[in-house]
Design a binder for these strands. Structure first.
Lengths: 260, 260
DNA sequence: CTGCAGTGTTCCATTATTTGGAACTTGATT
DNA sequence: AATCAAGTTCCAAATAATGGAACACTGCAG
């Protein structure tokens, strides 16, 4: 199982590495656990963690395990609220949801992951806020593949080269070749699909969004359970999904970058 | 007149101060704007911001203004998902919502602010995720006053002393004396109320939650529009709100701190 | 076209902070 | 009471941050 990353850019980078270690662990970590996962000496790590706790980025539980601090929630709340792209997309997501009755996602590409920025769903009873802020691999999500398809070729190759393909389900794309092939298809059709490639029984249709210069790419998707959403139904949403994406891009052009 | 901000504990603290400046601004800031708001030399600030962007905590927009980075969303998403207290409270919030039909909040005390950890509401059409991660002053929210009432006296006095009272509405508590008086009342009754003290037309009934040692205090509330929720109705929810808080505390005792 | 002003970016000797090893404390377990 | 592991503190040495000033870029006005 992987050690940490090699991104130790200055003090800040190291501090965030510690946060990342704690964020990534499925199980609560105590001091020595973190010590083993990081490659820092005891004294150093201890001071780092103390600082992080002081700043509210980490919390010290009573059993001496560490958790993420509430300061993060506060900052994220503002990050979300002040995100122009999300604000522009919101009404279009809403409309797409009304047209389909299924869950609609907005995600942006970050490295070789998709991070979900917004979500509109009908039944709130289950896991209301679960998706926003979550990340998923590009190569097995509709939004991810849609976003990739909007990248310039050189960028695309660079990103694909970094991916470590892992099989989530029987239909997960197995390697770079299959992914490249599918990207070509998406570029022609204008839509990406996820047919139970990440989670069993979950499928979606997606469409790409990009800024003029294609340095910023994102995607939207309509998602539903495979037992209810047949391939034909999915297909039938392709057009309105593309239309919603186009509408968002049109709004971006006018409301962002007043001096294009 | 207090000193300016003295929260500059090390490099990390300064970096977060920059993040805070950008998070707090209602309007996008460019480099020189931040420079004016921070008291750091140009070169230093520039490197700090560069590092923060590198780490994903800030974003550089194309018009050279800065925004909060998506890394924050990712971390916050995990912070929220892995928060034991929130997970324990969740079903109780749900039940309280079913009993009242109104919006239910869970908030914890942090300094002299309340930070909202969770929310269950009926109509999702408006501003779904708006509340979680938001902060509000203790002295004019039901959850805040409830949480305060659970603090030991010395802690209570210390916190109250830090508050700068500001009038949000006609019924906002005006000063420390009024607040102390109300806290006494809450301690006797077991419930706190907010009668349009923060926002016009918003009122709520709340109940305190605390860990055994009272170093951790929080609160839950049932909130609704004043035009629909009469004082009598509000009063009628006091009991079930207290009951929900009690149930959460009972669960905390068994599920947290396995080695009390 | 040229100079000007406002912004953003880079450089590097000085300075202050972080580092890391070891010693110390705590508190559970035998 | 002794032992061991986990957590905390300390300080000289190493390293990273600082901050002042110079450099570049951009649009604007003469």
């Amino acid at each position: 199982m992987g050690k940490a990353r090699e991104n130790s850019t200055g003090t800040l980078g190291k501090a965030l590495e510690v946060v990342h270690i704690i964020a990534s662990s499925p199980v609560p970590l105590r001091f020595t656990d973190v010590l083993k996962l990081s490659d820092q000496p005891r004294g150093t790590l201890h001071r780092q963690i103390s600082n992080l706790i002081e700043e509210g980025l980490l919390d010290l539980n009573r059993d001496h395990s560490y958790g993420l601090g509430l300061r993060l929630l506060e900052l994220a709340s503002r990050a979300w609220a002040s995100n122009d792209f999300r604000a522009i997309a919101e009404p279009h997501l809403q409309r797409l949801h009304e047209q389909t009755g299924e869950t609609v996602h907005l995600g942006v590409l970050r490295g070789i992951e998709v991070i979900y920025l917004d979500k509109v769903e009908s039944r709130q009873s289950v896991r209301m806020y679960s998706q926003i802020g979550n990340t998923a691999p590009v190569y097995c999500t509709g939004v991810g593949k849609a976003a990739l398809s909007a990248l310039p070729d050189d960028e695309l190759q660079a990103r694909i080269a970094q991916i470590a393909f892992r099989r989530f389900t029987a239909s997960t794309l197995p390697d770079a070749k299959a992914l490249r092939q599918e990207i070509e298809q998406i570029r022609v059709e204008g839509n990406a699909y996820d047919r139970e490639e990440h989670e069993a029984d979950i499928c979606c249709v997606a469409a790409p969004i990009h800024a003029n210069n294609r340095h910023f790419v994102a995607g939207i998707s309509v998602t539903g359970p495979a037992y209810r959403i047949t391939p034909e139904v999915l297909q039938s949403w392709a057009g309105i999904t593309r239309a919603a994406a186009a509408a968002i891009m049109a709004n971006m052009a006018t409301r962002l970058s007043p001096r294009a």
